[in-house]
Design a binder for these strands. Structure first.
Lengths: 140, 140
DNA sequence: CAGCATCCTCGTGGATACTG
DNA sequence: CAGTATCCACGAGGATGCTG
């Protein structure tokens, strides 16, 4: 395991301080990549699944997920809203109450998503087992 | 393993060096999260889609994706292999030749994945449009 | 209650050099 | 060709404090 030198010895290479990195963005026009960049983050997929159960308030979602930080909940919900997958409704009560629900577009994502969820549920044992075999072969 | 302290500036804040973070791992038993942690990375999904076309050699995959670094190609392929989604075959020629192909388990993932790809292709315009509207409302 | 602002840590992954 | 090994930039996201 790479314990991270930390030191960078006294003598050290003649290495230059590395020029800024230039991104290759050629893939930006690939639909699946753009969608995965969105759904592949830590919380989006999960929040959509929670919202599939029906509209929910901010605090409800927070409790439903329970290990999401409030900052990420806010941020993820907003980006889902931006993409038109989630709608946000403010009720001007005191204290304020905000409800989130899936839009039609968001709903339309449920079907393909549930296909993946079903696959995950079915195949997880096989994956875990494959993993064990692989690790055994390595270390045994 | 996080040895890393390294600098931590000379003068700097009166703030304490923040106690170590303890992970909430309560979600570890959720199949979809475990599967997404795997497929949600930058390359797995894409490599599986490439391998769906048939077995391919290391270099072929490298060129097929073309903006993946060789390090990440190696690493991603190995973790897919570990999970039993991809099989690796070495042909002891000179120079060596290594072929990767989807296992049956990997194949079984294609169907749910393609559902998602299809959705992405269909709905990307709607998402882009929603995004524009949202941004307009913000800045306009 | 439903956020916003700030700061800081750490994991992901790119760049590069080297090997069998 | 198909990797391994190292170094390091950067952005995701947790912790915390404050607000309407």
């Amino acid at each position: 395991m790479p314990v991270k030198k930390a030191v960078q010895g006294s003598m050290v290479t003649s290495r230059e301080p590395r020029p800024p990195r230039v991104l290759n963005e050629a893939h930006e026009d690939c639909a699946i990549r753009r969608v995965l960049d969105r759904l592949g983050d830590k919380w989006s997929y999960l929040l959509i699944l929670k919202l599939a159960k029906g509209p929910q308030r901010f605090g409800e979602l927070r409790r439903a997920v329970d290990d999401i930080s409030q900052r990420m909940l806010t941020e993820t919900l907003r980006s889902l809203q931006r993409d038109g997958l989630v709608a946000r409704t403010v009720y001007p009560t005191t204290p304020p109450s905000v409800e989130y629900r899936l839009t039609a577009l968001g709903q339309s994502l449920l079907e393909p998503m549930q296909g993946l969820v079903a696959w995950a549920d079915r195949q997880l044992p096989a994956i875990v087992s494959a993993r064990a075999t692989f690790d055994q072969a390595k270390c045994g």
